[in-house]
Design a protein around this nucleic acid. Structure first.
Length: 621
DNA sequence: TAGCCTTTGAAGCCG
DNA sequence: CGGCTTCAAAGGCTA
Protein backbone atom coordinates (compact mmCIF):
# COMPACT_ATOMS: atom_id res chain seq x y z
CA UNK A 1 0.00 0.00 0.00
CA UNK A 2 1.28 3.36 -0.91
CA UNK A 3 0.47 4.86 2.39
CA UNK A 4 2.60 2.38 4.03
CA UNK A 5 5.58 3.35 2.15
CA UNK A 6 7.01 5.65 4.57
CA UNK A 7 9.27 7.29 2.15
CA UNK A 8 6.87 7.43 -0.65
CA UNK A 9 5.51 10.72 -1.49
CA UNK A 10 2.71 9.46 -3.50
CA UNK A 11 0.62 7.79 -0.98
CA UNK A 12 -1.52 10.69 -0.22
CA UNK A 13 -1.57 12.30 -3.41
CA UNK A 14 -0.72 15.31 -1.54
CA UNK A 15 2.36 15.81 -3.49
CA UNK A 16 0.55 15.60 -6.66
CA UNK A 17 -2.00 17.91 -5.44
CA UNK A 18 0.48 20.33 -4.23
CA UNK A 19 2.26 20.24 -7.44
CA UNK A 20 -0.76 20.72 -9.42
CA UNK A 21 -1.90 23.23 -7.03
CA UNK A 22 1.11 25.21 -7.73
CA UNK A 23 0.04 25.35 -11.24
CA UNK A 24 -3.33 26.37 -10.29
CA UNK A 25 -2.14 28.74 -7.78
CA UNK A 26 -0.38 30.67 -10.37
CA UNK A 27 -3.43 31.44 -12.19
CA UNK A 28 -5.78 31.60 -9.37
CA UNK A 29 -3.83 33.53 -6.96
CA UNK A 30 -2.60 36.97 -7.36
CA UNK A 31 0.92 37.15 -6.35
CA UNK A 32 2.08 40.42 -5.17
CA UNK A 33 5.21 39.31 -3.61
CA UNK A 34 8.34 38.33 -5.30
CA UNK A 35 8.21 35.00 -6.89
CA UNK A 36 11.29 33.69 -5.28
CA UNK A 37 9.92 34.16 -1.87
CA UNK A 38 6.78 32.54 -2.99
CA UNK A 39 8.64 29.65 -4.36
CA UNK A 40 10.40 29.25 -1.14
CA UNK A 41 7.21 29.30 0.71
CA UNK A 42 5.67 26.88 -1.62
CA UNK A 43 8.63 24.66 -1.29
CA UNK A 44 8.29 24.81 2.39
CA UNK A 45 4.70 23.91 2.18
CA UNK A 46 5.29 21.14 -0.20
CA UNK A 47 7.97 19.88 1.99
CA UNK A 48 5.56 20.05 4.80
CA UNK A 49 3.31 17.65 3.14
CA UNK A 50 6.13 15.56 1.95
CA UNK A 51 7.50 15.51 5.36
CA UNK A 52 4.23 14.54 6.81
CA UNK A 53 4.01 11.76 4.40
CA UNK A 54 7.51 10.60 4.65
CA UNK A 55 7.40 10.82 8.34
CA UNK A 56 3.97 9.49 8.65
CA UNK A 57 5.28 6.44 10.25
CA UNK A 58 7.98 8.00 12.16
CA UNK A 59 7.50 10.04 15.17
CA UNK A 60 4.30 11.60 16.10
CA UNK A 61 6.34 14.00 18.05
CA UNK A 62 7.49 15.54 14.92
CA UNK A 63 3.94 15.95 13.96
CA UNK A 64 3.16 17.56 17.17
CA UNK A 65 5.98 19.89 16.61
CA UNK A 66 4.66 20.84 13.31
CA UNK A 67 1.29 21.47 14.67
CA UNK A 68 0.70 25.12 15.04
CA UNK A 69 -1.94 25.28 17.67
CA UNK A 70 -0.04 24.38 20.67
CA UNK A 71 -1.25 26.13 23.67
CA UNK A 72 -4.56 24.53 23.83
CA UNK A 73 -3.11 21.25 22.93
CA UNK A 74 -0.51 21.37 25.55
CA UNK A 75 -2.82 22.44 28.20
CA UNK A 76 -5.28 19.94 27.11
CA UNK A 77 -2.83 17.17 27.19
CA UNK A 78 -1.74 18.06 30.61
CA UNK A 79 -5.23 18.44 31.79
CA UNK A 80 -6.23 15.26 30.19
CA UNK A 81 -3.50 13.50 31.99
CA UNK A 82 -4.55 15.03 35.20
CA UNK A 83 -8.04 14.01 34.52
CA UNK A 84 -6.91 10.56 33.80
CA UNK A 85 -5.04 10.33 36.96
CA UNK A 86 -7.91 11.65 38.90
CA UNK A 87 -10.28 9.42 37.13
CA UNK A 88 -8.17 6.51 38.03
CA UNK A 89 -8.39 7.55 41.60
CA UNK A 90 -12.00 8.31 41.82
CA UNK A 91 -14.94 7.40 39.78
CA UNK A 92 -17.50 9.27 41.66
CA UNK A 93 -19.16 10.42 38.56
CA UNK A 94 -19.83 14.03 38.77
CA UNK A 95 -20.42 14.19 35.16
CA UNK A 96 -21.93 17.35 34.01
CA UNK A 97 -21.66 18.82 37.38
CA UNK A 98 -20.98 22.41 37.61
CA UNK A 99 -19.81 22.97 34.15
CA UNK A 100 -17.31 25.69 34.17
CA UNK A 101 -18.66 26.96 30.99
CA UNK A 102 -21.55 26.31 28.73
CA UNK A 103 -19.65 23.94 26.66
CA UNK A 104 -18.82 21.88 29.61
CA UNK A 105 -17.96 19.11 29.76
CA UNK A 106 -16.36 19.73 26.54
CA UNK A 107 -13.05 21.06 25.76
CA UNK A 108 -12.80 24.39 24.27
CA UNK A 109 -10.75 24.24 21.25
CA UNK A 110 -9.82 27.16 19.20
CA UNK A 111 -11.20 27.23 15.83
CA UNK A 112 -8.42 27.40 13.45
CA UNK A 113 -10.50 26.73 10.54
CA UNK A 114 -11.28 30.29 10.09
CA UNK A 115 -9.09 33.11 9.29
CA UNK A 116 -5.65 32.11 10.06
CA UNK A 117 -3.31 34.71 11.08
CA UNK A 118 0.03 34.75 9.50
CA UNK A 119 1.68 33.68 12.63
CA UNK A 120 -0.63 30.86 13.03
CA UNK A 121 -2.51 32.46 15.78
CA UNK A 122 -6.13 33.01 15.64
CA UNK A 123 -7.82 36.06 14.69
CA UNK A 124 -10.19 37.29 17.31
CA UNK A 125 -13.10 36.42 15.23
CA UNK A 126 -11.75 33.03 14.65
CA UNK A 127 -11.69 32.19 18.25
CA UNK A 128 -14.73 30.19 18.16
CA UNK A 129 -14.43 27.20 20.25
CA UNK A 130 -15.14 23.64 19.87
CA UNK A 131 -16.78 21.64 22.43
CA UNK A 132 -15.18 18.37 22.14
CA UNK A 133 -16.70 15.62 24.07
CA UNK A 134 -14.20 14.00 26.19
CA UNK A 135 -15.97 10.81 26.52
CA UNK A 136 -12.70 9.24 26.10
CA UNK A 137 -11.58 6.06 27.48
CA UNK A 138 -8.48 7.85 28.17
CA UNK A 139 -5.71 5.89 29.43
CA UNK A 140 -2.18 6.53 30.04
CA UNK A 141 -1.36 4.91 26.82
CA UNK A 142 -3.34 7.25 24.73
CA UNK A 143 -0.65 9.68 23.98
CA UNK A 144 -0.40 8.78 20.35
CA UNK A 145 -4.03 9.25 19.90
CA UNK A 146 -3.89 12.36 21.89
CA UNK A 147 -1.30 13.65 19.60
CA UNK A 148 -3.38 12.65 16.77
CA UNK A 149 -6.34 14.39 18.19
CA UNK A 150 -4.35 17.35 19.03
CA UNK A 151 -3.39 17.54 15.55
CA UNK A 152 -6.96 17.38 14.54
CA UNK A 153 -8.75 19.37 17.04
CA UNK A 154 -7.20 22.59 16.25
CA UNK A 155 -9.04 22.33 13.05
CA UNK A 156 -12.31 21.84 14.65
CA UNK A 157 -14.78 24.36 13.94
CA UNK A 158 -17.80 25.05 15.87
CA UNK A 159 -20.40 27.57 16.11
CA UNK A 160 -20.57 28.49 19.63
CA UNK A 161 -22.65 30.79 21.53
CA UNK A 162 -25.56 29.13 20.09
CA UNK A 163 -28.23 29.29 22.64
CA UNK A 164 -30.03 26.48 21.10
CA UNK A 165 -27.01 24.37 21.27
CA UNK A 166 -26.52 25.25 24.82
CA UNK A 167 -30.07 24.59 25.55
CA UNK A 168 -29.83 21.32 23.80
CA UNK A 169 -26.85 20.56 25.84
CA UNK A 170 -28.65 21.52 28.91
CA UNK A 171 -31.67 19.57 28.05
CA UNK A 172 -29.72 16.56 27.20
CA UNK A 173 -27.86 16.42 30.39
CA UNK A 174 -30.08 13.80 31.69
CA UNK A 175 -29.36 10.81 29.62
CA UNK A 176 -32.39 9.38 28.16
CA UNK A 177 -33.22 5.91 29.27
CA UNK A 178 -33.46 5.04 25.69
CA UNK A 179 -29.86 5.79 25.40
CA UNK A 180 -29.16 3.48 28.14
CA UNK A 181 -31.43 0.70 27.27
CA UNK A 182 -31.16 0.63 23.61
CA UNK A 183 -28.16 -0.14 21.74
CA UNK A 184 -28.55 3.03 19.93
CA UNK A 185 -26.07 5.63 20.37
CA UNK A 186 -27.32 8.66 22.08
CA UNK A 187 -28.31 10.62 19.18
CA UNK A 188 -26.89 13.94 18.62
CA UNK A 189 -28.58 15.66 15.89
CA UNK A 190 -26.35 17.44 13.61
CA UNK A 191 -26.98 18.71 10.19
CA UNK A 192 -24.08 16.75 9.03
CA UNK A 193 -23.14 13.58 10.54
CA UNK A 194 -19.75 13.42 11.85
CA UNK A 195 -17.29 11.40 10.14
CA UNK A 196 -15.82 9.02 12.53
CA UNK A 197 -12.41 9.49 11.35
CA UNK A 198 -12.55 13.13 11.09
CA UNK A 199 -12.94 15.30 14.02
CA UNK A 200 -12.52 18.10 11.68
CA UNK A 201 -16.06 18.71 11.26
CA UNK A 202 -17.73 21.59 12.67
CA UNK A 203 -19.24 20.66 15.85
CA UNK A 204 -21.74 22.37 17.82
CA UNK A 205 -22.66 21.69 21.32
CA UNK A 206 -25.66 19.90 20.22
CA UNK A 207 -23.49 17.27 18.80
CA UNK A 208 -22.56 16.20 22.14
CA UNK A 209 -25.49 16.67 24.25
CA UNK A 210 -24.96 15.30 27.65
CA UNK A 211 -27.32 12.61 26.81
CA UNK A 212 -24.78 11.26 24.53
CA UNK A 213 -22.29 9.96 26.89
CA UNK A 214 -23.32 6.60 28.01
CA UNK A 215 -23.47 6.05 31.72
CA UNK A 216 -20.20 4.38 31.75
CA UNK A 217 -18.76 7.27 30.02
CA UNK A 218 -19.88 9.70 32.49
CA UNK A 219 -16.51 10.74 33.26
CA UNK A 220 -15.86 12.90 36.13
CA UNK A 221 -15.23 16.36 35.15
CA UNK A 222 -12.53 18.43 36.42
CA UNK A 223 -14.18 21.57 37.61
CA UNK A 224 -11.05 23.45 37.04
CA UNK A 225 -10.26 22.36 33.61
CA UNK A 226 -13.71 21.58 32.52
CA UNK A 227 -12.33 18.49 31.07
CA UNK A 228 -14.29 15.43 31.79
CA UNK A 229 -12.28 12.93 33.61
CA UNK A 230 -12.07 9.90 31.56
CA UNK A 231 -13.96 7.04 32.90
CA UNK A 232 -12.06 4.29 34.33
CA UNK A 233 -11.76 1.62 31.80
CA UNK A 234 -11.70 -1.44 33.94
CA UNK A 235 -15.34 -2.05 33.53
CA UNK A 236 -16.32 -2.95 30.14
CA UNK A 237 -19.09 -0.74 29.16
CA UNK A 238 -22.34 -2.33 28.34
CA UNK A 239 -22.62 0.29 25.73
CA UNK A 240 -19.30 -0.09 24.25
CA UNK A 241 -18.44 -3.60 25.03
CA UNK A 242 -14.81 -3.62 24.56
CA UNK A 243 -13.02 -6.65 23.63
CA UNK A 244 -10.18 -7.48 25.92
CA UNK A 245 -7.87 -6.01 23.48
CA UNK A 246 -9.71 -2.78 23.46
CA UNK A 247 -9.11 -2.01 27.04
CA UNK A 248 -7.21 1.07 27.28
CA UNK A 249 -8.13 2.09 23.88
CA UNK A 250 -9.63 5.36 23.30
CA UNK A 251 -12.89 5.88 21.62
CA UNK A 252 -12.82 8.44 19.03
CA UNK A 253 -13.37 11.63 20.88
CA UNK A 254 -15.50 13.08 18.28
CA UNK A 255 -18.98 12.70 17.46
CA UNK A 256 -19.18 9.76 15.30
CA UNK A 257 -20.02 7.89 18.33
CA UNK A 258 -23.32 9.48 18.06
CA UNK A 259 -25.10 8.71 14.87
CA UNK A 260 -27.67 11.12 13.94
CA UNK A 261 -31.26 10.61 13.64
CA UNK A 262 -32.41 10.18 10.19
CA UNK A 263 -28.90 9.72 9.15
CA UNK A 264 -28.04 6.22 9.95
CA UNK A 265 -24.77 6.82 8.43
CA UNK A 266 -22.98 5.32 11.25
CA UNK A 267 -25.44 2.93 12.64
CA UNK A 268 -24.61 0.83 15.50
CA UNK A 269 -24.05 -2.63 14.42
CA UNK A 270 -25.84 -5.43 15.97
CA UNK A 271 -22.71 -6.51 17.61
CA UNK A 272 -23.13 -3.79 20.08
CA UNK A 273 -21.80 -0.40 20.39
CA UNK A 274 -18.18 -0.65 20.81
CA UNK A 275 -15.32 1.47 20.63
CA UNK A 276 -15.41 2.96 17.27
CA UNK A 277 -11.74 2.77 17.00
CA UNK A 278 -10.89 -0.33 18.80
CA UNK A 279 -7.39 0.03 17.78
CA UNK A 280 -7.30 3.68 17.90
CA UNK A 281 -4.55 3.75 20.35
CA UNK A 282 -2.44 1.10 18.98
CA UNK A 283 -3.14 2.22 15.58
CA UNK A 284 -2.17 5.67 16.24
CA UNK A 285 0.75 4.62 18.18
CA UNK A 286 1.91 2.39 15.51
CA UNK A 287 0.93 4.90 13.01
CA UNK A 288 3.14 7.45 14.46
CA UNK A 289 5.97 5.38 15.52
CA UNK A 290 6.01 2.33 13.47
CA UNK A 291 5.68 1.59 9.89
CA UNK A 292 2.13 0.62 9.30
CA UNK A 293 3.16 -2.67 7.90
CA UNK A 294 4.49 -3.53 11.28
CA UNK A 295 1.16 -3.07 12.81
CA UNK A 296 -0.65 -6.29 13.21
CA UNK A 297 -3.84 -6.25 11.29
CA UNK A 298 -7.04 -6.14 13.20
CA UNK A 299 -9.22 -8.06 11.00
CA UNK A 300 -11.85 -8.44 13.55
CA UNK A 301 -12.23 -4.85 14.17
CA UNK A 302 -15.20 -4.01 12.18
CA UNK A 303 -16.70 -7.36 12.75
CA UNK A 304 -17.00 -6.73 16.40
CA UNK A 305 -19.83 -4.41 15.98
CA UNK A 306 -17.75 -1.41 16.44
CA UNK A 307 -19.76 1.52 15.34
CA UNK A 308 -17.19 3.13 13.32
CA UNK A 309 -18.60 6.20 11.74
CA UNK A 310 -17.31 5.00 8.52
CA UNK A 311 -19.39 1.95 8.85
CA UNK A 312 -22.81 2.09 7.50
CA UNK A 313 -25.07 -0.78 7.46
CA UNK A 314 -26.42 -1.40 4.04
CA UNK A 315 -29.87 -1.01 5.36
CA UNK A 316 -29.41 2.64 5.39
CA UNK A 317 -28.20 2.71 1.93
CA UNK A 318 -30.21 2.73 -1.12
CA UNK A 319 -29.00 -0.67 -2.03
CA UNK A 320 -30.64 -2.07 0.95
CA UNK A 321 -34.08 -1.07 -0.05
CA UNK A 322 -33.54 -2.47 -3.42
CA UNK A 323 -32.25 -5.65 -2.06
CA UNK A 324 -35.18 -5.78 0.20
CA UNK A 325 -37.49 -5.48 -2.70
CA UNK A 326 -35.72 -8.16 -4.53
CA UNK A 327 -35.62 -10.41 -1.59
CA UNK A 328 -39.34 -10.65 -1.66
CA UNK A 329 -39.09 -12.83 -4.66
CA UNK A 330 -35.92 -14.53 -3.89
CA UNK A 331 -35.27 -17.83 -2.37
CA UNK A 332 -34.45 -18.27 1.23
CA UNK A 333 -30.95 -18.82 0.25
CA UNK A 334 -30.87 -15.62 -1.54
CA UNK A 335 -32.58 -14.04 1.35
CA UNK A 336 -29.99 -15.27 3.68
CA UNK A 337 -27.34 -14.00 1.41
CA UNK A 338 -28.96 -10.70 1.25
CA UNK A 339 -29.39 -10.69 4.91
CA UNK A 340 -25.76 -11.22 5.28
CA UNK A 341 -25.03 -8.54 2.85
CA UNK A 342 -27.43 -6.36 4.66
CA UNK A 343 -25.75 -6.95 7.88
CA UNK A 344 -22.47 -6.43 6.31
CA UNK A 345 -21.51 -3.00 7.37
CA UNK A 346 -20.82 -0.50 4.75
CA UNK A 347 -17.46 0.88 5.40
CA UNK A 348 -17.15 4.21 3.87
CA UNK A 349 -14.15 5.58 2.26
CA UNK A 350 -11.96 7.71 4.36
CA UNK A 351 -12.35 11.31 3.65
CA UNK A 352 -9.79 12.99 1.59
CA UNK A 353 -8.27 16.30 2.41
CA UNK A 354 -10.85 18.30 0.67
CA UNK A 355 -13.67 16.42 2.24
CA UNK A 356 -12.22 17.05 5.58
CA UNK A 357 -11.95 20.64 4.75
CA UNK A 358 -15.49 20.75 3.58
CA UNK A 359 -16.74 19.16 6.70
CA UNK A 360 -15.00 21.66 8.73
CA UNK A 361 -15.90 24.68 6.76
CA UNK A 362 -19.32 23.88 5.56
CA UNK A 363 -21.06 25.03 8.63
CA UNK A 364 -19.09 28.16 8.58
CA UNK A 365 -20.09 28.94 5.09
CA UNK A 366 -23.64 28.12 5.84
CA UNK A 367 -23.52 30.36 8.83
CA UNK A 368 -21.93 33.17 6.99
CA UNK A 369 -24.52 33.26 4.40
CA UNK A 370 -27.90 32.01 3.78
CA UNK A 371 -26.60 29.39 1.53
CA UNK A 372 -27.78 25.96 2.23
CA UNK A 373 -27.42 24.29 -1.01
CA UNK A 374 -24.57 21.95 -0.81
CA UNK A 375 -23.75 22.32 -4.40
CA UNK A 376 -23.28 26.01 -4.04
CA UNK A 377 -21.49 25.65 -0.81
CA UNK A 378 -19.19 23.14 -2.28
CA UNK A 379 -18.33 25.48 -5.01
CA UNK A 380 -17.40 28.08 -2.55
CA UNK A 381 -15.48 25.64 -0.56
CA UNK A 382 -13.73 24.50 -3.63
CA UNK A 383 -12.55 27.96 -4.25
CA UNK A 384 -11.60 28.47 -0.72
CA UNK A 385 -9.73 25.30 -0.83
CA UNK A 386 -7.63 26.59 -3.60
CA UNK A 387 -7.24 29.80 -1.78
CA UNK A 388 -5.84 28.05 1.17
CA UNK A 389 -2.20 28.31 1.73
CA UNK A 390 -0.12 25.27 1.25
CA UNK A 391 0.37 25.06 4.90
CA UNK A 392 -3.26 25.03 5.59
CA UNK A 393 -3.84 22.53 2.91
CA UNK A 394 -1.03 20.49 4.23
CA UNK A 395 -2.89 20.18 7.45
CA UNK A 396 -5.75 18.61 5.71
CA UNK A 397 -3.59 16.42 3.65
CA UNK A 398 -1.98 15.29 6.77
CA UNK A 399 -5.30 14.66 8.36
CA UNK A 400 -6.49 12.84 5.35
CA UNK A 401 -3.41 10.75 5.40
CA UNK A 402 -4.00 9.84 8.96
CA UNK A 403 -7.56 9.15 8.19
CA UNK A 404 -6.58 6.73 5.56
CA UNK A 405 -4.01 5.21 7.76
CA UNK A 406 -6.39 4.79 10.57
CA UNK A 407 -9.01 3.51 8.28
CA UNK A 408 -6.60 1.08 6.84
CA UNK A 409 -5.65 -0.08 10.24
CA UNK A 410 -9.19 -0.49 11.29
CA UNK A 411 -10.26 -2.22 8.18
CA UNK A 412 -7.26 -3.96 6.82
CA UNK A 413 -9.22 -5.92 4.34
CA UNK A 414 -11.27 -3.07 3.17
CA UNK A 415 -10.80 -1.74 -0.26
CA UNK A 416 -12.38 1.13 -2.01
CA UNK A 417 -13.62 -1.34 -4.48
CA UNK A 418 -15.89 -2.67 -1.81
CA UNK A 419 -17.91 0.41 -2.31
CA UNK A 420 -17.19 0.58 -5.93
CA UNK A 421 -20.28 -0.49 -7.63
CA UNK A 422 -19.53 0.72 -11.04
CA UNK A 423 -18.72 -2.22 -13.17
CA UNK A 424 -19.05 -4.42 -10.22
CA UNK A 425 -22.44 -5.64 -10.85
CA UNK A 426 -24.65 -3.67 -8.71
CA UNK A 427 -26.50 -0.66 -9.69
CA UNK A 428 -25.25 2.64 -9.01
CA UNK A 429 -26.11 6.10 -9.42
CA UNK A 430 -24.67 7.16 -12.58
CA UNK A 431 -23.86 10.72 -12.96
CA UNK A 432 -25.68 12.26 -15.72
CA UNK A 433 -23.47 12.33 -18.69
CA UNK A 434 -22.98 15.72 -20.06
CA UNK A 435 -22.13 16.27 -23.59
CA UNK A 436 -19.15 18.48 -24.13
CA UNK A 437 -21.35 21.09 -25.66
CA UNK A 438 -23.91 20.59 -23.03
CA UNK A 439 -21.91 22.21 -20.39
CA UNK A 440 -22.96 25.31 -18.71
CA UNK A 441 -19.85 27.10 -19.54
CA UNK A 442 -21.57 29.52 -21.74
CA UNK A 443 -24.20 30.24 -19.30
CA UNK A 444 -21.44 30.47 -16.90
CA UNK A 445 -19.96 33.15 -18.98
CA UNK A 446 -23.22 34.84 -19.17
CA UNK A 447 -23.95 34.73 -15.61
CA UNK A 448 -20.54 34.79 -14.32
CA UNK A 449 -18.55 36.70 -16.78
CA UNK A 450 -16.18 38.33 -14.47
CA UNK A 451 -16.45 36.64 -11.23
CA UNK A 452 -13.40 35.75 -9.42
CA UNK A 453 -14.91 32.43 -9.49
CA UNK A 454 -13.68 30.08 -12.03
CA UNK A 455 -16.15 28.48 -14.24
CA UNK A 456 -18.05 26.21 -12.15
CA UNK A 457 -19.56 23.69 -14.28
CA UNK A 458 -18.33 21.12 -16.57
CA UNK A 459 -16.31 23.60 -18.38
CA UNK A 460 -14.21 23.80 -15.37
CA UNK A 461 -13.44 20.22 -15.20
CA UNK A 462 -9.93 19.07 -15.45
CA UNK A 463 -10.71 17.80 -18.85
CA UNK A 464 -10.72 21.17 -20.31
CA UNK A 465 -7.59 20.74 -22.26
CA UNK A 466 -8.72 17.36 -23.22
CA UNK A 467 -11.83 18.79 -24.60
CA UNK A 468 -9.97 21.50 -26.35
CA UNK A 469 -7.19 19.53 -27.83
CA UNK A 470 -8.30 16.03 -27.66
CA UNK A 471 -6.42 13.07 -26.55
CA UNK A 472 -4.22 13.08 -29.53
CA UNK A 473 -2.76 16.40 -28.63
CA UNK A 474 -2.00 15.94 -25.07
CA UNK A 475 1.26 17.65 -25.53
CA UNK A 476 -0.76 20.80 -25.68
CA UNK A 477 -2.48 20.09 -22.48
CA UNK A 478 -1.58 21.98 -19.45
CA UNK A 479 0.19 20.13 -16.81
CA UNK A 480 -2.72 19.88 -14.44
CA UNK A 481 -4.87 18.52 -17.17
CA UNK A 482 -2.39 15.84 -17.82
CA UNK A 483 -2.57 15.07 -14.21
CA UNK A 484 -6.28 15.13 -14.21
CA UNK A 485 -6.26 18.32 -12.37
CA UNK A 486 -8.02 21.49 -12.94
CA UNK A 487 -7.13 22.99 -16.18
CA UNK A 488 -4.99 25.98 -15.62
CA UNK A 489 -5.48 27.25 -19.07
CA UNK A 490 -9.09 27.25 -18.59
CA UNK A 491 -8.78 29.10 -15.41
CA UNK A 492 -6.11 31.33 -16.62
CA UNK A 493 -8.19 32.54 -19.35
CA UNK A 494 -7.57 32.81 -22.96
CA UNK A 495 -5.80 36.06 -22.66
CA UNK A 496 -2.68 34.48 -21.54
CA UNK A 497 -2.98 30.92 -22.24
CA UNK A 498 -1.86 28.92 -25.09
CA UNK A 499 -5.11 27.33 -25.53
CA UNK A 500 -7.29 28.54 -28.27
CA UNK A 501 -9.65 31.26 -27.43
CA UNK A 502 -11.95 29.57 -25.22
CA UNK A 503 -15.54 30.18 -25.31
CA UNK A 504 -15.83 28.95 -21.88
CA UNK A 505 -15.35 30.84 -18.76
CA UNK A 506 -11.69 30.76 -19.00
CA UNK A 507 -11.59 34.38 -19.27
CA UNK A 508 -12.94 34.70 -15.93
CA UNK A 509 -11.09 35.58 -13.13
CA UNK A 510 -7.69 34.46 -13.17
CA UNK A 511 -5.28 37.04 -14.13
CA UNK A 512 -3.33 36.41 -17.18
CA UNK A 513 -0.24 34.53 -16.55
CA UNK A 514 3.03 35.72 -17.62
CA UNK A 515 4.68 33.68 -20.26
CA UNK A 516 7.21 32.42 -17.89
CA UNK A 517 4.50 31.36 -15.61
CA UNK A 518 3.06 29.41 -18.35
CA UNK A 519 6.37 28.00 -19.08
CA UNK A 520 6.65 26.71 -15.63
CA UNK A 521 3.24 26.50 -14.26
CA UNK A 522 4.47 24.74 -11.27
CA UNK A 523 6.94 27.34 -10.56
CA UNK A 524 4.84 28.45 -7.89
CA UNK A 525 2.62 30.70 -6.33
CA UNK A 526 2.57 32.01 -3.04
CA UNK A 527 0.06 30.80 -0.69
CA UNK A 528 -2.83 32.98 -0.94
CA UNK A 529 -5.83 33.51 1.01
CA UNK A 530 -9.01 34.28 -0.59
CA UNK A 531 -8.83 37.78 0.55
CA UNK A 532 -6.24 38.28 -2.01
CA UNK A 533 -8.27 36.51 -4.49
CA UNK A 534 -9.90 39.26 -6.27
CA UNK A 535 -8.14 37.91 -9.17
CA UNK A 536 -9.60 39.94 -11.80
CA UNK A 537 -11.02 43.23 -11.21
CA UNK A 538 -10.87 43.86 -14.81
CA UNK A 539 -13.19 42.26 -17.08
CA UNK A 540 -11.60 40.52 -19.89
CA UNK A 541 -13.19 40.80 -23.19
CA UNK A 542 -15.55 38.01 -23.24
CA UNK A 543 -16.83 36.84 -26.51
CA UNK A 544 -19.99 36.04 -24.77
CA UNK A 545 -19.99 39.04 -22.64
CA UNK A 546 -22.06 41.07 -24.91
CA UNK A 547 -24.75 38.62 -24.37
CA UNK A 548 -24.73 38.84 -20.72
CA UNK A 549 -22.79 41.69 -19.41
CA UNK A 550 -24.66 44.69 -18.58
CA UNK A 551 -22.87 47.77 -19.58
CA UNK A 552 -23.01 48.94 -16.10
CA UNK A 553 -20.74 47.80 -13.46
CA UNK A 554 -21.50 44.65 -11.76
CA UNK A 555 -20.85 43.61 -8.34
CA UNK A 556 -20.65 39.96 -8.25
CA UNK A 557 -19.66 38.34 -5.16
CA UNK A 558 -19.82 35.05 -3.60
CA UNK A 559 -21.78 36.69 -0.98
CA UNK A 560 -24.87 36.34 -2.92
CA UNK A 561 -27.01 33.66 -1.76
CA UNK A 562 -27.83 30.63 -3.64
CA UNK A 563 -30.43 29.93 -6.09
CA UNK A 564 -33.29 30.67 -3.90
CA UNK A 565 -32.03 34.02 -3.00
CA UNK A 566 -29.95 34.72 -5.97
CA UNK A 567 -32.46 37.07 -7.31
CA UNK A 568 -32.63 39.07 -4.27
CA UNK A 569 -30.13 40.94 -2.37
CA UNK A 570 -28.38 39.09 0.24
CA UNK A 571 -26.12 39.86 3.00
CA UNK A 572 -23.21 38.18 4.37
CA UNK A 573 -21.58 38.46 7.60
CA UNK A 574 -19.02 40.61 6.13
CA UNK A 575 -21.67 43.19 6.12
CA UNK A 576 -21.48 43.67 2.48
CA UNK A 577 -24.71 43.87 0.78
CA UNK A 578 -24.52 42.07 -2.44
CA UNK A 579 -26.87 43.20 -5.00
CA UNK A 580 -27.17 40.12 -6.93
CA UNK A 581 -30.47 40.83 -8.32
CA UNK A 582 -29.46 43.24 -10.97
CA UNK A 583 -26.73 41.07 -12.16
CA UNK A 584 -28.60 37.94 -12.15
CA UNK A 585 -31.73 39.36 -13.43
CA UNK A 586 -30.05 40.99 -16.30
CA UNK A 587 -28.18 37.96 -17.10
CA UNK A 588 -31.17 35.90 -16.71
CA UNK A 589 -33.21 38.08 -18.87
CA UNK A 590 -30.71 38.01 -21.59
CA UNK A 591 -30.36 34.39 -21.16
CA UNK A 592 -33.85 33.44 -20.67
CA UNK A 593 -33.28 30.65 -23.04
CA UNK A 594 -30.68 29.15 -20.90
CA UNK A 595 -31.46 26.03 -19.13
CA UNK A 596 -32.46 26.52 -15.63
CA UNK A 597 -29.66 24.34 -14.68
CA UNK A 598 -27.36 26.92 -15.97
CA UNK A 599 -28.97 29.54 -13.94
CA UNK A 600 -28.90 27.31 -11.09
CA UNK A 601 -25.32 26.66 -11.54
CA UNK A 602 -24.55 30.22 -11.70
CA UNK A 603 -26.55 31.20 -8.79
CA UNK A 604 -24.93 28.51 -6.93
CA UNK A 605 -21.67 29.97 -7.72
CA UNK A 606 -22.60 33.13 -6.19
CA UNK A 607 -21.95 31.84 -2.87
CA UNK A 608 -21.03 33.73 0.14
CA UNK A 609 -17.65 34.41 1.32
CA UNK A 610 -16.67 36.09 4.41
CA UNK A 611 -13.84 37.58 2.60
CA UNK A 612 -14.91 39.82 -0.11
CA UNK A 613 -14.35 37.98 -3.21
CA UNK A 614 -16.50 40.32 -4.99
CA UNK A 615 -15.30 41.80 -8.08
CA UNK A 616 -16.32 45.00 -9.52
CA UNK A 617 -16.09 44.59 -13.13
CA UNK A 618 -15.56 47.32 -15.51
CA UNK A 619 -17.81 47.84 -18.31
CA UNK A 620 -16.66 46.15 -21.38
CA UNK A 621 -15.89 49.22 -23.23
C1' DT B 1 -37.76 8.69 -3.00
C1' DA B 2 -33.74 7.99 -5.71
C1' DG B 3 -30.74 10.64 -7.94
C1' DC B 4 -28.63 15.11 -9.22
C1' DC B 5 -25.86 18.95 -8.23
C1' DT B 6 -21.07 20.50 -6.88
C1' DT B 7 -16.46 20.37 -5.13
C1' DT B 8 -11.50 17.73 -4.66
C1' DG B 9 -9.02 13.74 -3.82
C1' DA B 10 -8.29 8.78 -3.59
C1' DA B 11 -8.62 4.68 -5.69
C1' DG B 12 -10.40 1.10 -8.74
C1' DC B 13 -11.23 -0.47 -13.36
C1' DC B 14 -10.26 -0.87 -18.12
C1' DG B 15 -7.88 -0.66 -22.49
C1' DC C 1 0.38 3.73 -17.73
C1' DG C 2 -3.19 6.83 -18.84
C1' DG C 3 -7.95 7.78 -18.88
C1' DC C 4 -12.23 7.27 -16.95
C1' DT C 5 -15.34 6.31 -13.21
C1' DT C 6 -16.93 5.94 -8.59
C1' DC C 7 -17.18 7.34 -3.98
C1' DA C 8 -16.57 10.12 -0.02
C1' DA C 9 -20.03 14.78 2.50
C1' DA C 10 -24.09 17.46 2.26
C1' DG C 11 -28.66 19.35 1.69
C1' DG C 12 -31.76 21.40 -1.47
C1' DC C 13 -33.87 20.29 -5.57
C1' DT C 14 -36.15 17.49 -9.24
C1' DA C 15 -38.30 13.91 -11.81
Amino acid sequence: MPQLNGGGGDDLGANDELISFKDEGEQEEKISENSSAERDLADVKSSLVNESETNQNSSSDSEAERRPPPRTETSFREKARESLEEAAKRQDGGLFKGPPYPGYPFIMIPDLSGPYLPNGSLSPTARTCVNVPLDLHLTSCCSPLMQYLQMKWPLLDVQTGNLQSRQALKDARSPSPAHIVSNKVPVVQHPHHVHPLTPLITYSNEHFTPGNPPPHLQADIDPKTGIPRPPHPPDISPYYPLSPGTVGQIPHPLGWLVPQQGQPVYPITTGGFRHPYPTALTVNASMSRFPPHMVPPHHSLHTTGIPHPAIVTPTVKQESSQSDMGSLHSSKHQDSKKEEEKKKPHIKKPLNAFMLYMKEMRAKVVAECTLKESAAINQILGRRWHALSREEQAKYYELARKERQLHMQLYPGWSARDNYVGGYGKKKKRKRDKQPGETNEHSECYLNPCLTLPPITDANTPKKCRALFGLDRQNLWCKPCRRKKKCIRYIQGEGSCISPPSSDGSLLDSPPLSPNMLASPASDSKPQTEQTQPLSLTLKPDPMAHLSMPSSSLVLTEGCTSKSSALSTSTCQNGVLHHCQPTISQSSSSLAHLPTSSLHSHSSVVGVQPQPLSLVTKSLD
